Deep mutational scan, measured.
Amino acid sequence: MSIQHFRVALIPFFAAFCLPVFAHPETLVKVKDAEDQLGARVGYIELDLNSGKILESFRPEERFPMMSTFKVLLCGAVLSRVDAGQEQLGRRIHYSQNDLVKYSPVTEKHLTDGMTVRELCSAAITMSDNTAANLLLTTIGGPKELTAFLHNMGDHVTRLDRWEPELNEAIPNDERDTTMPAAMATTLRKLLTGELLTLASRQQLIDWMEADKVAGPLLRSALPAGWFIADKSGASERGSRGIIAALGPDGKPSRIVVIYTTGSQATMDERNRQIAEIGASLIKHW
């Protein structure tokens, strides 16, 4: 058993032996400061991975655009179909130039040979490839079927209504393609630790998130040596930015963190910096 498999397999085991986890309101002070700095709403939640207890939250039940963070949920739905014998990670999917949409750094290189379902999930999560996400959405029946999958998990909040890139429109008060921090954190925890997916599929999902290559300026920039993080970021119109993550010290995840912001006029660099500073406060007061 690899170190990674050891880590995921023991998450339920550690729940019975973990020390009490204490919240630190200092992080919420930073979240509120980020709102002031960005001139935008910020949603935040910090969840204990083992118990599911909410440690801190700010606007946990307000809607925010999901942006590309939905791609983790999408690959969770794909893995659920794999577990049920309805899909194979090794199945190759062929597509054409007409299928390519904006920001497809991986799929645009494989027009001649296509990509496997496994490769598409990797591209969608680690590189946020939009065509990969659309191709995967097609395999499960489209955005409405992803919403149905989430409903069956008990998440009646999170919804996907459109495809890439239209889902990134982020119109104020538009509930399409949105979630709430509390709903996203709970759903992510179920995917990573619950019985919905097999152990192998849970491991695969967290491996893809751990290999994320496009979230460096966010929480990863504040991470001390030896800490673990598996994450997925997102960005969209109207100053929207977000990240969902499982992270913790000693090389294993122990908390879920979800951060969303929307409605800012700030630059992408400034949005990144504010999220990184929230992460730094979280780690300092861990």
Rank of each mutant, 00 (worst) to 15 (best):
Ser2Thr: 13
Ile3His: 15
Ile3Tyr: 14
Gln4Ala: 13
His5Cys: 13
Phe6Gln: 08
Phe6Arg: 11
Arg7Ser: 12
Val8Asp: 12
Leu10Gly: 09
Leu10Ile: 15
Leu10Pro: 08
Leu10Tyr: 10
Ile11Arg: 04
Ile11Thr: 10
Ile11Leu: 09
Ile11His: 04
Pro12Val: 13
Pro12Thr: 14
Pro12Asn: 10
Phe14Val: 12
Phe14Tyr: 10
Phe14Cys: 11
Ala15Leu: 15
Phe17Leu: 10
Cys18Tyr: 10
Leu19Gln: 15
Leu19Pro: 10
Pro20Ala: 06
Pro20Leu: 02
Val21Asp: 01
Val21Gly: 10
His24Arg: 08
Asp36Gly: 15
Asp36Val: 15
Gln37Leu: 14
Leu38Gln: 05
Leu38Arg: 03
Leu38Tyr: 06
Ala40Arg: 01
Ala40Leu: 05
Arg41Gln: 09
Arg41Pro: 08
Arg41Cys: 05
Arg41Ser: 08
Arg41Ile: 06
Arg41Asn: 08
Tyr44Val: 04
Ile45Val: 15
Leu47Arg: 01
Leu47Val: 15
Asp48Asn: 04
Asp48Val: 03
Asn50Gly: 15
Ser51Gly: 08
Ser51Asn: 10
Lys53Ser: 12
Lys53Asn: 11
Leu55Gln: 04
Leu55His: 05
Glu56Ser: 08
Ser57His: 09
Arg59Thr: 07
Pro60Ser: 14
Pro60Ala: 15
Glu61Ile: 09
Phe64Tyr: 04
Pro65Asn: 05
Met66Ser: 01
Met67Asn: 15
Thr69Ala: 00
Leu73Cys: 06
Leu74Val: 06
Ala77Glu: 06
Val78Ile: 13
Leu79Val: 04
Ser80Ile: 08
Ser80Ala: 14
Ser80Met: 11
Ser80Arg: 12
Arg81Cys: 04
Arg81Ile: 03
Arg81Thr: 04
Arg81Ser: 07
Arg81Val: 04
Val82Thr: 07
Val82Tyr: 06
Val82Ile: 11
Val82Phe: 06
Val82Gly: 03
Asp83Lys: 01
Ala84Arg: 14
Gln86Ala: 13
Glu87Val: 06
Gln88Val: 13
Leu89Cys: 04
Gly90Glu: 15
Arg91Ala: 04
Arg91Cys: 02
Arg92Val: 15
Ser96Phe: 11
Gln97Leu: 13
Asn98His: 13
Asp99Ser: 14
Tyr103Val: 07
Tyr103Arg: 04
Glu108Gly: 13
Leu111Gly: 04
Leu111Pro: 07
Asp113Glu: 14
Thr116Ile: 04
Ser122Arg: 11
Ala124Ser: 09
Ile125Val: 11
Ala133Leu: 00
Ala133Ser: 11
Leu135Gly: 00
Leu135Thr: 04
Leu135Ile: 13
Leu135Ala: 05
Leu135Met: 09
Leu136Pro: 00
Leu137Gln: 02
Leu137Pro: 00
Pro143Ser: 02
Lys144Glu: 15
Lys144Gly: 14
Glu145Gly: 15
Leu146Val: 07
Thr147Arg: 07
Thr147Ile: 05
Ala148Gly: 12
Phe149Leu: 06
Phe149Cys: 05
Asn152His: 15
Met153His: 09
Met153Thr: 11
Gly154Asp: 08
Gly154Ala: 03
Gly154Glu: 07
Asp155Asn: 12
His156Tyr: 11
His156Leu: 11
Val157Ala: 12
Thr158Gln: 11
Leu160Phe: 08
Arg162Leu: 04
Pro165Ala: 05
Pro165Met: 04
Asn168Pro: 02
Asn168Leu: 04
Asn168Ser: 08
Glu169Arg: 07
Glu169Gln: 13
Glu169Asp: 12
Glu169Leu: 09
Ala170Lys: 07
Ala170Pro: 10
Ala170His: 14
Ile171Val: 13
Ile171Arg: 10
Pro172Cys: 11
Glu175Gln: 12
Glu175Gly: 07
Glu175Thr: 11
Glu175Ser: 10
Glu175Ile: 14
Glu175Leu: 12
Arg176Asp: 04
Asp177Asn: 03
Asp177Leu: 01
Asp177Arg: 00
Asp177Tyr: 01
Thr178Tyr: 02
Thr178His: 01
Thr179Ile: 00
Thr179Ala: 00
Thr179Asn: 00
Met180Arg: 10
Met180Ser: 15
Pro181Arg: 00
Ala182Glu: 12
Ala183Leu: 03
Ala183Val: 09
Met184Tyr: 04
Leu188Pro: 00
Leu188Trp: 01
Leu188Met: 09
Leu188Phe: 12
Leu192Val: 08
Thr193Ser: 13
Gly194Ile: 03
Leu196Gln: 15
Leu197Phe: 03
Leu197Arg: 02
Thr198His: 09
Ala200Cys: 10
Ala200Thr: 13
Ser201Tyr: 03
Ser201Val: 02
Ser201Cys: 07
Arg202Gln: 11
Gln203Ala: 11
Ile206Asn: 07
Ile206Met: 15
Asp207Glu: 14
Glu210Gln: 11
Ala211Arg: 11
Asp212Ser: 05
Asp212Lys: 02
Lys213Gln: 13
Val214Leu: 11
Ala215Lys: 03
Pro217Val: 07
Leu218Phe: 02
Leu218Asp: 02
Leu218Arg: 01
Leu218Tyr: 02
Leu218Lys: 01
Leu219Lys: 02
Leu219Ile: 14
Leu219Pro: 02
Arg220Val: 01
Arg220Ile: 01
Ser221Arg: 11
Ser221Pro: 06
Ala222Asp: 06
Leu223Ala: 06
Ala225Arg: 13
Ala225Ser: 14
Ala225Thr: 13
Gly226Ala: 05
Phe228Tyr: 15
Phe228Val: 03
Ala230Cys: 08
Lys232Arg: 02
Ser233Cys: 03
Ser236Cys: 05
Glu237Val: 12
Glu237Lys: 10
Arg238Phe: 13
Arg238Trp: 12
Gly239Cys: 04
Gly239Lys: 02
Ser240Gly: 15
Ser240Ala: 15
Ser240His: 15
Ser240Thr: 06
Gly242Ser: 06
Gly242Arg: 00
Gly242Ala: 10
Gly242Glu: 00
Gly242Val: 00
Ile243Cys: 05
Ile243Leu: 09
Ile244Glu: 00
Ile244Leu: 05
Ile244Gln: 00
Ile244Pro: 00
Ala246Glu: 02
Pro249His: 02
Asp250Lys: 09
Asp250Thr: 07
Gly251Arg: 09
Lys252Asp: 05
Pro253Gly: 05
Pro253Ala: 10
Ser254Met: 12
Ser254Glu: 15
Ser254Arg: 09
Arg255Gly: 02
Ile256Ala: 02
Val257Leu: 07
Ile259Val: 08
Ile259Ser: 00
Tyr260Cys: 01
Thr261Ala: 10
Thr262Met: 11
Gly263Trp: 09
Ser264Met: 06
Gln265Asn: 15
Gln265Gly: 14
Gln265Arg: 13
Gln265Pro: 14
Thr267Ile: 06
Thr267Ala: 11
Thr267Pro: 14
Thr267Leu: 07
Thr267Gln: 09
Thr267Asn: 13
Met268Cys: 06
Met268Glu: 07
Met268Leu: 13
Met268Thr: 07
Asp269Met: 10
Arg271Trp: 04
Ile275Tyr: 02
Ala276Asp: 03
Ala276Arg: 15
Glu277Leu: 11
Leu282Ala: 05
Lys284Ile: 07
Lys284Ala: 15
Lys284Glu: 13
Lys284Leu: 11
Lys284Gly: 07
His285Gln: 06
His285Arg: 06
